[in-house]
Amino acid sequence: MQRLVKRKDFLAAAKGLRANAGPLLLQARDRADEDCPRIGLTVTKKHGNAVERNRIRRRLREAVRDALPRAGRPGFDYVIVARRAALGTRFSELVIDVERGIGRLHSGSRRGPRPAAGGRATRDAVRADGDAANDV
């Protein structure tokens, strides 16, 4: 398992696909190569002191080590953003959540890439059926 260590790789994954999976948020990007998948873990300071954050990180690292060979695809970078609930979740459920999240990323049942700054829909946006969004 290769790890993401550079900030630009984390930022690139944040602009890609996203999926929620229980106590995790998964982000992914397709590198468009056939190299093995890489993984990055993020646990913010709001989730406890250093001891708790490191415990969450160790648990996630082991869960990914178990789930990635089954669920991951070559040529993808995955970033897992942990929530505090990852500390209290049973390990077997954590592995299932990682697999489920990666599956959602690749199945299409996830949120798409974030729109660029200023790319939000305007008040007079047009819906898919051609009607203006505010003509209800």
Score class of each variant (00 low, 15 high):
residue 32 A to K: 09
residue 34 E to R: 15
residue 34 E to V: 10
residue 33 D to C: 14
residue 32 A to V: 00
residue 37 P to N: 02
residue 37 P to L: 02
residue 26 L to I: 08
residue 9 D to A: 05
residue 14 A to C: 04
residue 27 Q to F: 01
residue 37 P to V: 05
residue 20 N to Y: 12
residue 27 Q to M: 12
residue 35 D to C: 04
residue 19 A to F: 03
residue 23 P to A: 11
residue 30 D to G: 12
residue 37 P to G: 01
residue 31 R to N: 13
residue 30 D to C: 15
residue 22 G to T: 06
residue 33 D to S: 14
residue 34 E to L: 15
residue 29 R to N: 13
residue 10 F to Y: 13
residue 36 C to S: 14
residue 20 N to G: 12
residue 15 K to S: 12
residue 10 F to W: 05
residue 35 D to T: 04
residue 12 A to T: 04
residue 26 L to F: 10
residue 21 A to K: 02
residue 28 A to V: 11
residue 28 A to E: 11
residue 23 P to I: 15
residue 25 L to I: 10
residue 10 F to R: 07
residue 19 A to R: 01
residue 24 L to S: 09
residue 15 K to A: 14
residue 14 A to S: 13
residue 25 L to F: 10
residue 29 R to G: 14
residue 13 A to P: 06
residue 9 D to W: 05
residue 26 L to H: 04
residue 29 R to F: 15
residue 14 A to P: 05
residue 27 Q to L: 11
residue 11 L to Y: 11
residue 29 R to P: 12
residue 21 A to D: 06
residue 9 D to C: 00
residue 33 D to G: 14
residue 34 E to I: 02
residue 8 K to V: 05
residue 24 L to H: 00
residue 25 L to Y: 10
residue 31 R to S: 07
residue 13 A to N: 08
residue 36 C to H: 15
residue 31 R to M: 04
residue 32 A to W: 00
residue 34 E to G: 14
residue 14 A to V: 04
residue 31 R to I: 00
residue 23 P to G: 14
residue 35 D to A: 13
residue 34 E to H: 11
residue 9 D to G: 00
residue 14 A to E: 11
residue 15 K to T: 09
residue 17 L to V: 07
residue 21 A to T: 08
residue 35 D to R: 11
residue 11 L to T: 11
residue 21 A to G: 12
residue 31 R to F: 05
residue 12 A to P: 01
residue 27 Q to I: 02
residue 28 A to M: 13
residue 37 P to W: 01
residue 19 A to E: 01
residue 31 R to Y: 09
residue 36 C to V: 14
residue 32 A to C: 04
residue 16 G to P: 00
residue 29 R to Q: 13
residue 17 L to M: 11
residue 25 L to C: 11
residue 13 A to Q: 07
residue 12 A to G: 08
residue 36 C to I: 11
residue 17 L to G: 07
residue 9 D to E: 11
residue 18 R to E: 02
residue 13 A to F: 05
residue 16 G to H: 00
residue 15 K to C: 14
residue 35 D to E: 10
residue 10 F to C: 12
residue 33 D to K: 04
residue 33 D to Q: 13
residue 24 L to N: 06
residue 20 N to R: 15
residue 29 R to K: 14
residue 14 A to W: 06
residue 31 R to H: 05
residue 27 Q to G: 09
residue 17 L to D: 07
residue 35 D to L: 09
residue 13 A to K: 07
residue 14 A to L: 02
residue 9 D to S: 03
residue 10 F to S: 06
residue 14 A to T: 02
residue 23 P to C: 13
residue 36 C to R: 15
residue 9 D to V: 01
residue 22 G to S: 10
residue 36 C to F: 15
residue 31 R to E: 05
residue 17 L to I: 02
residue 9 D to H: 00
residue 28 A to Y: 12
residue 8 K to G: 04
residue 8 K to S: 12
residue 34 E to S: 14
residue 14 A to Q: 12
residue 13 A to H: 01
residue 37 P to I: 01
residue 17 L to Q: 11
residue 26 L to R: 04
residue 36 C to T: 11
residue 37 P to A: 05
residue 15 K to V: 00
residue 22 G to F: 05
residue 25 L to G: 09
residue 22 G to M: 06
residue 34 E to D: 15
residue 33 D to M: 09
residue 15 K to M: 15
residue 23 P to N: 14
residue 22 G to E: 06
residue 24 L to E: 03
residue 33 D to H: 07
residue 19 A to W: 00
residue 14 A to F: 01
residue 14 A to K: 08
residue 18 R to C: 12
residue 35 D to Y: 08
residue 10 F to G: 10
residue 11 L to G: 13
residue 11 L to S: 15
residue 13 A to Y: 01
residue 8 K to I: 03
